[in-house]
Design a protein around this nucleic acid. Structure first.
Lengths: 129, 129
DNA sequence: GCTTCATGTTTACAAACGTAGTCGCTATGA
DNA sequence: TCATAGCGACTACGTTTGTAAACATGAAGC
């Protein structure tokens, strides 16, 4: 077998994640456009966004498509996969891999709003059907 | 006002967290005892544990009580607080602060076992009573 | 008293991260 | 054609993290 694209899913840092969110929300975007969407809130300069984008390209989490002399950036990984990975990491690390334990913790800490509880109930009903 | 113990809750890294888990499970422990409990699984040397312990002491996440020549280390923060902080961070960052969205995600990804579902149902029933 | 063991302190050092400046190229308008 | 603005690439640099070795010092046995 010719090696193939054996890319281990390099970890995305917190700052990088903010850029990913922008791209997940809308893509493709140029570096400047990404900056328009995140620089204000994060207090970043365009240079910072450029650095993060190239690191994300290296990590193959973002794809850069040439458009003249610039690039159009798009996510190269689905948000759901990222979210799933992070969620599982947390559940594994802190709740022994048991989502129910996380849920119990949230309940105990009163972190669940009435609305949360209602929605979860509805979801459970759906699962059961 | 005299400044007081204005300690912002310094972030605990992943490696440090492993040490915390050992201490939460049983404390106080000496550095060697902590190593006995984690070095094998993590493939660490005693030196590594010593470094992590002192960093944790600096971060005020661990308290060191002198015992003759050596120290007995104990957690200086409750596990539940740590777990709660991490959980909320995740929910905020990835699920817009809505635990129900996290739950929906888990359900969609089929990350919930029959046992998880049953336990969550039971918890909900309890909450409702 | 001297060697040795245990233990905390200091120092090390590479990789990852956060944040950003500078360089070089090119399309573009004057 | 020449200055210019826009943009990616390269470089930079302090901090945090992971991992550990070297050092100092006191206790304990011989």
């Amino acid at each position: 077998m010719t090696e193939g694209e054996n890319s281990k899913p390099e970890r995305i840092s917190e700052a990088e994640h903010a850029v990913m969110e922008a791209l997940w929300e809308h893509s493709p975007l140029t570096a400047t456009e990404v900056c328009d969407r995140v620089c204000e809130t994060r207090g970043w300069s365009l240079a910072t966004v450029k650095t993060l984008l190239s690191r994300l390209v290296t990590k193959q989490a973002v794809a850069a498509q040439a458009d003249g002399r610039r690039f159009l950036y798009s996510p190269a990984m689905a948000r759901v996969d990222y979210v799933d990975g992070e969620s599982r990491r947390l559940v594994d690390r802190l709740f022994g891999g048991r989502p129910a334990t996380l849920f119990a913790h949230l309940a105990e800490q009163e972190a669940l709003s009435e609305r949360d509880i209602a929605e979860i109930e509805a979801l459970l009903k759906e699962i059961r059907s």
